[in-house]
């Protein structure tokens, strides 16, 4: 199984691997990464629909870049919290962690309530706060409605 995967998506000497991406989210992550200056011309390999013990099917991205900037990770934590971020050096995984949902979101997602003032006044930049440490629910600071993290409308840079 592993050798087959290596054939499909080769190892990288150094860079970042985004693993355990739920199948179907890989293309969205690629679009997000490519919207950031500095990553728009980075070498990125996208693999789709691999077998996964954890998820059934998963996507995976490998990026030739020394690191992912904090803002990219913050953006990614909205789009795909739970993915695994691995830092690779000399073909070996040097460190990895599971990307957790953010506690606060500001300027990275739009409120999906069309009657929220943040969708009408330029000065009202949408921001959200997580309800509780284990929750994936977020309250809009303006309209005070509560949304699931995956309901939020991501704003690309």
């Amino acid at each position: 199984m592993n050798s087959e995967r290596h054939l499909l998506i080769p190892k990288i000497e150094s860079g970042i691997v985004i693993d355990h991406v739920p199948a179907g989210l890989g293309a969205g992550i690629l679009e997000l990464l490519r919207s950031y200056a500095g990553l728009d011309d980075a070498q990125i390999t996208l693999g789709l629909n691999y077998d996964s013990n954890k998820l059934g099917r998963k996507d995976m991205l490998k990026i030739i870049a020394p690191e992912l900037p904090k803002k990219v990770l913050a953006h990614l934590s909205i789009l795909a919290s739970g993915v695994t971020i691995k830092r690779v050096d000399n073909y070996r995984v040097q460190g990895k962690y599971s990307l957790q949902p953010p506690d606060h979101i500001e300027g990275l997602a739009r409120c999906i309530n069309p009657n929220c003032i943040s969708n009408h006044e330029r000065q009202a930049s949408a921001r959200f706060t997580r309800l509780g440490e284990t929750s994936h629910k977020f309250r809009c600071a303006y309209c005070e409605r509560v949304f699931e993290l995956d309901e939020l409308d991501i704003v690309l840079p």
Binding site: N113, N115, C116, I117, S118, Q123, A124, Y142
Partner: peptide, 11 residues
């Protein structure tokens, strides 16, 4: 009539 307007005013 828009939700969040008072919050924006306060800010």
């Amino acid at each position: 009539p828009k939700e969040g307007t008072a919050r924006l005013a306060a800010e």
